[in-house]
C-alpha cells in the first residue's frame, strides 16, 4: 500500500547539479543542498566541494549571529534589519533554528512569519530548521549550513537561535560577529548576564529602548560589563519603531572590517573550522553512544564508569 504510485515525478537533483546551481545562487539548488546535508545524504562529498570552493573564493559573507531570550523582539529586529539591507541592494540569507518535539519528532517552525511580508524577493533567503537529531549541544549541520550559504555568496548571513545555554555559546563559534539581543524589564536579562554569554558576544543590542524602563536595564548592564575585559558595546534601538537600525548596520560593517583588517576574522574562521571538526566528532560518537545506551543491557551491580571505559576501549578509543 505504501508503494502506491504517485502521479508526480518528484524533483531529484544530482550532487553535481545541486553544487552548480548552489554557487550560482539558485534557490532551488541552495534549498536542496541544505536538505541533503540535513538529511545526511551526500554529506561528505558535497560538503568537501563546498568547503574547497569557499576557501578559494574572494567574496566573503558577513556571518552575523543573533541570539537572545524569547520576547526580546529578535524576529522583529531581524525583519527590520533584513528590510534595511535589502533596500541597500544586498543579498541576505537567514537561518532560524526551532526546537522539535522529542516525542514525535515533529516541529512547528514559525520564525519566518515575521519576515513573510518581505517576500517574494530574489535577494532574500530564509530557511527554518528544527533542532531534530541533536545529541547534546548544537547540530553540526547548522555550521555546515552556514558554509552552504557562503557558497551562494550572500552579502549577509544571519543566524537566529533561541534559548539560554549551550546554543548561545555555540552560535558565537559559528559567526564572525554575534549580537545578544535584550529588552528592558525582562527577568531573563540577568540570567543572560550570569550565563557568561556576555563575555563572548561582540555586541549587545538593547531593543525596545524607547520604553521608559530601558535606561534602568542599561544601567544594570553597564555595571556588569564593566567587570568584563574587552566588554561588548551596547547599541540601543527600537526594532518596532525602526529606530537605530542604520546605526546597527554601520556598527556591524565597521566592526567586521576592523576584524578583517586586523586579522581577527581569519583567526575566528580558523577557530570555527576547528570547532566544527570537534562538533562532527561529538555528533558521530554521540549517536553511537546513544545507540549503545538504548540497546545496552542493564547490570545494576556493575559500575557505569567501568562499562563506559571498557566499551570505548572496545571501539578503539584511547582512554
Amino acid at each position: 500500500m505504501r508503494n502506491k504510485v504517485s502521479k508526480k515525478k518528484r524533483l531529484v537533483l544530482t550532487e553535481e547539479e545541486v553544487f552548480r546551481r548552489l554557487i550560482q545562487g539558485d534557490e532551488v539548488g541552495l534549498a536542496r543542498a541544505l536538505s541533503m546535508i540535513y538529511r545526511e545524504e551526500a554529506t561528505s562529498s558535497l560538503l568537501s566541494r563546498i568547503y574547497a570552493y569557499n576557501a578559494d573564493k574572494k567574496h566573503k559573507s558577513k556571518v552575523i549571529g543573533i541570539t537572545g531570550a524569547g520576547g526580546v523582539g529578535k524576529s522583529t529586529l531581524i525583519s527590520v534589519l533584513a528590510e534595511a539591507l535589502l533596500k541597500k541592494g544586498l543579498r541576505i540569507g537567514i537561518i532560524a533554528v526551532d526546537p522539535s518535539s522529542p516525542k514525535t519528532g515533529g516541529a512547528l517552525l514559525g520564525d519566518r512569519i515575521r519576515l513573510q511580508h518581505l517576500f517574494p524577493n530574489p535577494n532574500l533567503f530564509f530557511r527554518s530548521f528544527s533542532s531534530r537529531g541533536m545529541v547534546g549541544g548544537i547540530n553540526p549541520f547548522i555550521f555546515d549550513a552556514v558554509a552552504v550559504l557562503e557558497a551562494a555568496s550572500f552579502d549577509y548571513i544571519i543566524i537566529e537561535t533561541l534559548g539560554i545555554g549551550q546554543d548561545e555559546i555555540d552560535i558565537v563559534h559559528m559567526c564572525d560577529l554575534t549580537a545578544l539581543v535584550i529588552a528592558p524589564g525582562l527577568g531573563d536579562d540577568v540570567q543572560f548576564l550570569k550565563s557568561g554569554v556576555i563575555e563572548l558576544v561582540d555586541l549587545i543590542v538593547m531593543n525596545k529602548s524607547d520604553l521608559p524602563t530601558a535606561s534602568r536595564t542599561v544601567g544594570i548592564l553597564n555595571s556588569y560589563t564593566r567587570m568584563v575585559e574587552n566588554h561588548p558595546d551596547i547599541i540601543k534601538l527600537s526594532a518596532y519603531k525602526k529606530q537605530g537600525i542604520m546605526e546597527l548596520i554601520e556598527y556591524i560593517d565597521n566592526k567586521w572590517q576592523e576584524l578583517l583588517d586586523n586579522g581577527s576574522l581569519e583567526k575566528r574562521r580558523m577557530e570555527r573550522w576547528k570547532f566544527q571538526v570537534g562538533n562532527w566528532m561529538r555528533y558521530i560518537i554521540g549517536k553511537r553512544i546513544h545507540k549503545f545506551v538504548e540497546k545496552g543491557e542493564v547490570n545494576p551491580k556493575a559500575s557505569p564508569y567501568e562499562i563506559a571505559i571498557s566499551t570505548l576501549k572496545e571501539w578503539g578509543c584511547e582512554v
Partner: peptide, 23 residues
C-alpha cells in the same frame, strides 16, 4: 512532520517562494 506556517494574507508568490526555500 516538520511544519512551516506562512501566517495569513499571503500572495501566491510568497507561498511559492517559501515552499522552494524550505524545500
Amino acid at each position: 512532520f516538520e511544519v512551516i506556517y506562512t501566517g495569513i494574507r499571503q500572495t501566491p508568490a510568497q507561498v511559492a517562494q517559501t515552499a522552494v526555500q524550505e524545500d
